[in-house]
Amino acid sequence: METSLKGWEIMSIVNYVHFEFPSLPENVSFARSCVGAFVSQLNCTLDDIEEIKLVVSEAVSNCIIHAYENRSDGKIEIIASLRDDRSLELTVKDYGKGIENLEQALQPSYSSDPNRMGLGFTFMKSFMDEMDISSQPQEGTSVLLKRNFLNRDRQAYA
């Protein structure tokens, strides 16, 4: 985790949570509930929390379905941190097969699986302010997501 912590401005972090779990479908619900409960400290709306839960669900489902191809022995890590500017920074990391063609994977409606809608990254992008993906074939993928709740409030009341 050292690499992920390096860039952090420790001073501005109010609180953080870091957890890992195996790539079991049962853990998708656990992960989103956990992050949802953590984010509720920001005094954001229920709609905000629902959006964050959806984002976590998409990111973790991607790890299980794509990175680990439905194997249950993969490791998934989540780091969520709250900053003093009321922003959330979320990292979802796997050590799976990596994304070969990132540009293609990010296209709305693209999916490598015909039974899926290809909406995962679209949801993540839509409900967060920033999304940054780093992926190495056979090493894994790390998705960094940021959202500032203060800005959203301002937009909502503008």
């Binding site: 899926r116 290809g118 909406l119």
Partner: peptide, 9 residues
């Protein structure tokens, strides 16, 4: 109470 892209699929 909750749906994501797997459910939509």
């Amino acid at each position: 109470t909750f749906i994501d892209s797997s459910g939509l699929g």
